[in-house]
Amino acid sequence: MELIVCIKRVPQTAEAEVKIDDSGKDIVKDRLTFDMNEADSYALEEAILLKEKFGGAITAVSLGTAEAEDTLRIALAKGADNAIRIKAEEFGELDGYKTAMIIKEAIKDLKFDAIFTGCMATDDSYYQVGPVLAETLGVPHATLVSKIELTDKKVHVNRELEGGLIEHLEMSLPAVFAVQTGINEPRYASLIAIRRAAAKEIKVLGKDDIASEPKLNSTLEELFVPPVGKRAEFLTGTADEVSARTAEIIKEKGLI
């Protein structure tokens, strides 16, 4: 099977202090750590599992700056066979749509049975790359995918809906799957594999390799700190003092 996985390197902001930079349109990134987008690591694992079962090869693709090559090397270490970086620095502002259209140009000569993406990226929170890619390639898609089972010529696909309800679809390949977290258990790359991946070649494509620059659907005008609604009453002091106060509050509510 020929498999393609789209991977994005994103800043890890869940536990970090996030500040707006001087442009007013981006965040200060120099003190943040970066990693493979969470859902993408599940997408990669799903492709590796299929490869292990049915054979074939995986191409990992990332539209990113040079640092994204580190993330691609992790993908190579885990089980991808080839890697392509598309130079994000040559394309100016990006949104989910434009990203998908650029990736399409970069992979249009590759044969594929399935393309995997994460269902969304935690930095810009678009849910677009998978389904736009599918539409522009003329193949069906499923988003929020929580299970993929390949039998004969058909693929049984589960999508996770609200409240944990599952939608079971029957699809055929080729198709694009935008994978939800939790679908599998992403493996860790071994140290030996990481060392080996360091020597592998990453194909780098630029603007000149893309037929035409896709348009942007949306332009970011400004970033701002979300307005705070009802803010918590903060309990301060030592862990002991805070706990005593919290226990009192719980008792006042009649819950102890």
């Binding site: 800043p11 902001t13 869940a14 996030v18 707006i20 965040i27 935690t122 930095d123 348009k215 942007l216 659907n217 949306s218 332009t219 970011l220 005008e221 400004e222 970033l223 701002f224 700190v225 979300p226 307005p227």
Partner: peptide
């Protein structure tokens, strides 16, 4: 960014 920033965006 995990709900830590809001953005105004304009559609083309």
């Amino acid at each position: 960014y995990d709900g830590k920033m809001d953005a105004h965006v304009r559609l083309s």
